[in-house]
């Protein structure tokens, strides 16, 4: 067991230089620790988000910026002009609903596939002895330090009709005519799974690596077959990692734009692409903002409720 030591400054020194002076101002360490991330997110997430919410309630116009002010103030009277039409518009046209459903479905399937591939890999890496473990971990992330576009182009090279895969299949006589793989939903799944695989493997690894070996051994000693041990011991213990990995793939994949744009076909109707069109082609910032807000509500609110329920259950 390596010695457990915090990197960088020692704890007391850190305390002396950071928290202590502020504590004298009447702020407890606890409050401070809470305030740092809260303030950062307030300024750089919540305020911009409120700006987006504001835009989603306004009317588009040709101006800089391209939407009408929400209200007027004539010195005495404040007139608010809220336009909920953008939200009504989203409900009106089935395009948006279809795009939301298709995106969530695509993201879900991709996340499930990534889990199927990622779990065994994370498990194997986490169970490997050092230094192989670190080596494998870095090998997982290394491809992603090249460049996203290069990787997508490389995949295009594999998938195209005169590409590597088709040439191989034709040469071996498995097929006669090239399969159309590029610009299909298959290519989109492949692209998303490939791109997000480290986001599945790394959280799983972080959970699995500290799994208590003695539990697994106990299970094996009690005569449980490896499969039973896996489903009754390993999987439940690694659930936090599974949830985290699934979330990190599923949630961002819903709004994915670049992958369907470069690998998908014309029928690939992802909400990210719809939003992109609203924003750039229609120059309708208000509708684009409304699309984003709806997406946020659809995805984040259930998640927050779940988390709060969890927290309450833990507290009780």
């Amino acid at each position: 067991m390596p010695r457990a030591q915090a990197p960088g400054m020692s704890a007391p020194a850190l305390w002396r230089w950071t928290a202590a002076p502020l504590a004298r101002l009447g702020l407890s360490g606890r409050t401070l620790v809470i305030l740092v991330p809260v303030i950062w997110l307030l300024v750089f997430f919540l305020i911009p988000f409120l700006v987006v919410a504001k835009i989603s309630l306004s009317e588009p116009m040709i101006a800089q910026p391209p939407y009408a002010p929400l209200g007027t103030w004539d010195g005495l009277r404040l007139t608010l002009d809220l336009n909920f039409g953008n939200y009504a518009f989203l409900l009106d046209d089935p395009l948006y609903l279809n795009a939301y459903v298709f995106s969530i479905q695509t993201a879900f399937v991709s996340a499930a596939l990534a889990l199927l591939i990622g779990y065994p890999m994370a498990w194997y890496i986490a169970r490997s002895p050092e230094p192989r473990r670190t080596l494998l971990l870095l090998l997982v992330i290394l491809p992603f330090w090249t460049s996203f576009l290069l990787r997508v182009y490389a995949w295009q090279g594999f998938l195209r009709s005169n590409g590597v895969i088709n040439n191989f299949l034709i040469a071996t006589g498995i097929i006669d005519t090239p399969l159309v793989m590029l610009q299909t939903n298959f290519a989109v799944y492949l692209g998303i799974v490939y791109t997000y695989l480290p986001f599945m493997i790394l959280p799983l690894y972080a959970t699995l690596v500290k799994l208590d070996d003695s539990l697994l051994e106990a299970s094996a000693d009690l005569g449980a077959r490896p499969v039973a041990t896996f489903f009754h011991v390993t999987l439940p213990l690694s659930m936090p990692g599974v949830i985290a990995g699934f979330m990190l793939v599923f949630v961002p994949a819903i709004g994915e734009f670049v992958i369907p744009e470069l690998l998908g076909g014309p029928n690939t109707l992802m909400i990210g692409k719809v939003l992109w069109g609203e924003f750039f082609s229609n120059r309708d910032w208000p509708v684009a903002s409304a699309v984003a807000i709806v997406m946020l509500v659809v995805v984040v609110v259930p998640f927050m409720l779940l988390r709060n329920a969890q927290a309450r259950a833990e507290a009780e």
């Binding site: 588009p60 040709i62 395009l95 279809n98 014309p266 029928n267 109707l269 229609n282």
Partner: peptide, 19 residues
């Protein structure tokens, strides 16, 4: 104008995706 723009782009999406 903005309305025609939207009509055109909506129809375009329809051509592209069949939706």
């Amino acid at each position: 104008d903005a309305r025609t723009d939207r009509l055109i782009n909506r129809l375009w999406t329809q051509v592209r995706t069949g939706q």
